[in-house]
Design a protein around this nucleic acid. Sequence first.
RNA 1: GCACCGCUAGCUCAACUGGCAGAGCAGCUGACUCUUAAUCAGCGGGUUGGGGGUUCAAGUCCCUCGCGGUGCACCA
Length: 501
Amino acid sequence: MSDEVESETEIPEQVQIRRNKRQAILDSGAQAYPVSLPITASIAQLRAEHGHLDAEAATGITVGIAGRVIFSRNTGKLAFATLSAGGGETIQAMVSLGQVGEQSLSEWKALVDLGDQVFVSGEVITSKRGELSVFVDSWSMASKSLRPLPVAHKEMNEESRVRQRYVDLIMRPEAQVMARTRVKTVSALRTSLSNREYLEIETPMLQTQPGGATARPFITHSNAFGIDLYLRIAPELFLKRAVVGGLDRVFEINRNFRNEGADSTHSPEFAMLEFYQAFADYQDMATITRELIQEAAQTVAGSLTVTHFDGSEHDLSGVWPQIDLYESLSHAVNQEVTPETSRVILEELCSSVDIKFAPSWVNGKLVEELFEHYIIPTFTGPTFVMHFPVDTSPLTRDHRSRAGVVEKWDLYVDGFELATGYSELVDPVIQRERLVEQASLGAQGDKEAMPLDEDFLRALEHGMPPSGGVGLGVDRLLMALTGQGIRETVLFPLVKPERDK
RNA sequence: GCACCGCUAGCUCAACUGGCAGAGCAGCUGACUCUUAAUCAGCGGGUUGGGGGUUCAAGUCCCUCGCGGUGCACCA
């Protein structure tokens, strides 16, 4: 009992007052959380149907609507409230003494707070100032809110917005837009791939060994099997197994998990689209990828020029330029850089621009570091970077005519890597050599190197058709379409738990 | 992981060199029948992220823990 009293004293004043109001509603015989309400219209419908009425219009139409009170203006005998629906549409409720009577008006003023969900019934009219309104005949509480909303005209800090996304969605139309844009984007990707005869399949998230990328996995444990399992870092090796089996065009949109640092462009769990097509190469995949992104932009923005939340416009139309990694780097450093360029020269080039590197890094990694330093900042629109070093791309086919590079591209948009595509390596002998090499790196302590997946190699030994493959970050596509950080594109990003509060 | 910065009322933020913890919005009471972040008058609301220390005195200085931000490292 004393616990009860103690916890009561810790409740903020405003929450206690709202609890008291909830109790007052119940004590009056009314409900604070009714199970159903006689709703006849949505706020969005009323906006669409009556949004263009002149001031002081009366429609003669009576509706019942529910919405969240986001502004409240009470005068002596006439109370105004702005009601909000989920999608950001609003309508005004007018509660007058003449229409509802003294008791109902005084209860409205005493019991309705900002943030409450209320139901109002009345005629659709416009006010003297032309505001679309419901002139209330009767009202009731739809759901009493016990917590005050934040100030409407100041930005909540980012942490609060992320931790309490429900409040963010109430307060900020951009949060609603983002959630809806994400749905449209993912739906557009599925439609575009389906139109190209792709099959959406689901591959294991719990894997007995991680593969398909170089990244540290999350580890969990199976009690039934008595072994550790890994949350997948990529679906690649399973999608390729499917292609071996004759599912010629497959894709998966789902979560990957990587046990690494988190920042504005990296989240421990992130949504990824991977797709593979038999008898296609990396150029075919670049074309499809561009079309997927353009079709998504068209669906979301209605245009190939997307407008970011900050108002800036970004043109995604046309055919995007392809630049060659080694050629562009050679040009930038005024000296020929090729896959044969010596270690000494690469290290000198890195040191000259303060790029830190580890002795364990392969030459190709140094080249990629140099490329990121010199070339990526110069991109102005979507750009394909072509032909990466062999030693950093173990799952990729060697270039058909150039030594030391692979048939791989990275697509950069807004300065970050949005997608990567390949002519997949399907020769099981070469694939085995590459994976064994990676596994031996693992034995030397490189935690991101892949263990050998014998079953995947066995699948390849059954003959995988020459294929193109692409990985595309769904969160990053949202970033490209909206200009927001990854934590804004994900509705509920992973955050450390709150404590002592 | 390392470095730096931050954490004060429900929310957004002040508080000089260590010297009585404040404002706006929100809330409460009252006034007001066309408001638009309504207005006017009055009032309440704080374990200054948690713990420890220095000091006559700590929001402020020191130690430590938690959470966040930025940069670096790693990665998509």
